[in-house]
């Protein structure tokens, strides 16, 4: 039997205002090994698509399937959110605990791990991401790059099946960006990455998509090599 996609969107319609529908009949499957680069102009609904996937907003029509099952109840959404980690664009929104360790252990504790296991898991995650030594730092004293990486750690510590990364390189200097690329390249977790940085997207993704007239469009990687492209 074929494994159902982690997430499938079926005939999704969504709009913020009546005149301009953001999504019109979107169908999309996100599989276990997908590493998708997602680009497109501002205001076309990239972040909104992520928010629809994790149920922070609900579509007007259509449904979200998690491992082949339509998601309806809040408990199902919670299960989905624990399996699909969403790393927010603004790390200050993501890191709400006073110390790094508290923050990285927050997810595992919500998964029901005992405090010492959660702590162990948090320390392991920090180590995997090369962030050991940061655990006792106060989150508000971290640099912008550290905040980004810690917010990735705070999601990775839940061992998600898939990641949704919303502009992870925003505000990072080349050095921090290179570090993030190295981390993501070694990460087997399926992911969709929103970015305006093509070089970055090319390095960490296997397939690409964009959004046009309310539809998702697959784009092959030659697209980037073909100057001048539309964006």
């Amino acid at each position: 039997m074929v494994e159902p996609p982690i997430i499938a969107l079926e005939h999704i319609f969504f709009s913020y205002t009546e005149q301009t529908p953001l999504f019109a009949d979107i169908c999309f499957a996100f599989n276990r090994d997908d590493k998708i680069g997602f680009f497109g102009p501002n205001g076309k609904g990239k972040t909104t698509l992520f928010r629809l996937i994790v149920g922070l907003i609900k579509p007007e029509k259509g449904q979200v399937l998690f491992r082949g099952v339509p998601v309806h109840t809040e408990n199902q959404w919670r299960e989905l959110r624990c399996a699909v980690g969403f790393v927010l664009q603004n790390a200050d929104d993501q890191l709400f605990c006073p110390t790094v360790l508290d923050d990285v252990a927050f997810g595992p504790l919500n998964l029901g791990l005992a405090p010492d296991e959660a702590k162990k898991r948090a320390l392991e995650t920090l180590k995997t991401l090369g962030l050991e030594g940061l655990e006792n730092r106060l989150t508000h004293t971290l640099s912008g790059g550290e905040k980004k990486l810690v917010s990735l750690a705070s999601v990775m510590s839940m061992r998600p099946d898939a990641l949704l990364l919303d502009e992870p390189t925003n505000g990072l200097d080349p050095e921090a960006k290179a570090r993030l690329v190295a981390i993501l390249k070694n990460l087997p977790t399926a992911r969709i990455t929103i970015s305006h940085d093509w070089d970055f997207l090319m390095e960490i993704s296997h397939s690409f998509m964009t959004i046009n007239n309310g539809k998702l469009i697959d784009v092959d990687s030659d697209f980037f090599m073909r100057p001048p492209h539309i964006y």
Binding site: L56, G85, L88, D93, Q94, G107, L109, D116
Partner: peptide, 23 residues
């Protein structure tokens, strides 16, 4: 921001009870 932070908490499986690693 408070609305966004609450969403961030929901995204990591928060359901009303704060647990702590402090022993």
């Amino acid at each position: 921001r408070s609305a966004r932070v609450y969403e961030a908490m929901q995204l990591r499986g928060f359901c009303g009870k704060f647990r702590s690693i402090a022993l």
